[in-house]
Simulated assay, not measured.
Amino acid sequence: MDAAWLNPEEWTCSEGVQEVLLESRKSSTRLTYLAKWTRFSRWASERGISPLRSSIEAVLDYLLHLRNQGLAYSSIRVHLAAISAFHLLIQGQMVFSHDMMVRFLKGLERLFPQDLLKDFLYKREKGELLIQKSKRLKNNLLKQMQLSVSKDGFVHFGDTVMLLSPENNKSPTENYPAACGNLTLAVNPDDITVHTSESLQVPCGLSAVKSVNPVGRNAFRILSVEGNSMGEPIRFGQNFGLGATGGFTDQMLYLASDHKSFMRFAKKSYLQQVFLTDELSYLTCWQATFLDPQLRLEYEGFPVPANTKVLITHCHTNRGLAVPRNYWIRSYFGKEYEVICHTYLDSHKAEEDKNYWIIVTANPSDDGITMFDRPKPPSEETREREKNELYAGT
């Protein structure tokens, strides 16, 4: 570990804590800061100044030196951030937040407003403005997605599907104040990410939304975690992963969960939380379980049917993916519902409908988008009645 990245107070922490503190900055940021700090150290050494213990006046002289060399205001701030990362505290303050430094930066803004305009035009041309990044993220999250078509009626590795929590059978009065209707599992980035990033950041949250149209937010890919070939049907009791791209082609996050702790739990229900991470591990393994507990063992190893109610269980914690429906959260996209990992059992020790899920695939015909939109075939009684009415009319 490089001592320059840690201040004296941080060096009193344990080695494990120091490693975590060092990872607070990305490797690319550390490389950039190191280059800027090397340049400042060279400038200070030429003038007989200690780079680590220089005065605030010396740092201001260096920044003014950079401005006289033609550096833009944004570049000067990067140099200042690098110096502040390495430099010792000055009068108990970091270099970046020192009172004199704040006044100096305000003065630069007023003396050289053309730098701000140049910086704005440059970022706009490169697509680096926050509003441009935010727009790209939202466009991808809401982009129309094409689900996979199941030719044999089963779910396969590599399929792009929706995970739908079907409408329960309770009456609105009994279900009050819970949400009625069908809900789909969806990516739910925090507001800061939506407004400042152009891609999904980890850890990323999830929620249940009322939209049943496949978009970047609620489309998931069935992944193999045990080396199974793509295209093979997944089976009851077999491990698989669930990946979310958020509409991006170069990014994949994985559905994960872990035991709740004092620091990690669902914000509304305080139960086991569900989140998205960027690496596959034992926390990202799931299994499909047959709905009827009396036939569960008999169906072990059979292919999982698509567009049919099943249970989705987290392998590590043995808890079911669930939507309680009475805990709603406020997101950038509006009112949505909390998704957790918890097995709800009724008086007969059978899972409740909060744990029911339908793995939805695409409709091969042109009549609808998904198989869930496809009209249900008439029952035997309905067909018999229509047949009798037809004969009676003739």
Rank of each mutant, 00 (worst) to 15 (best):
E10V: 07
W11G: 04
W11K: 12
W11R: 13
E15K: 08
E19Q: 03
V20N: 03
L21A: 05
K26N: 09
S28T: 15
A35M: 05
T38S: 15
W43P: 13
E46V: 04
G48Q: 13
I49Q: 09
P51R: 02
R53Y: 14
S54T: 10
E57P: 03
L60T: 11
D61T: 07
Y62C: 06
L63P: 09
L66H: 02
R67M: 05
G70K: 02
Y73V: 00
L80W: 12
A82R: 11
F86R: 14
H87Q: 14
Q91T: 07
M101R: 01
R103N: 14
R103I: 03
G107V: 01
G107M: 14
G127E: 13
E128S: 05
Q132A: 06
K135A: 09
R136T: 10
L137S: 08
L142G: 04
G153L: 04
D159W: 03
L164M: 15
E167S: 12
E174F: 06
Y176E: 00
N188F: 04
T196L: 15
S197D: 14
V202I: 12
P203N: 09
L206C: 14
K210Y: 00
S211M: 08
V212K: 04
G216W: 15
R217T: 09
L223R: 14
S224E: 13
V225E: 12
G231L: 12
I234P: 03
I234F: 13
G237C: 11
G241F: 12
L242S: 08
G246N: 10
G246K: 12
T249S: 14
T249D: 15
T249M: 11
Q251H: 10
L255H: 07
L255P: 06
M263S: 08
S269E: 05
S269G: 00
Q272F: 02
L283V: 02
T284E: 07
T289N: 00
F290T: 02
L295M: 10
L297E: 15
Y299A: 04
E300H: 07
F302D: 06
V304Q: 11
N307K: 07
L311N: 07
R319M: 03
N326D: 08
Y332N: 08
E336Q: 04
V339I: 08
C341A: 15
Y344T: 03
E352A: 00
E352L: 05
N363A: 02
D367N: 08
G368I: 01
K376H: 05
E380H: 09
R385F: 11
L390D: 08
A392C: 10
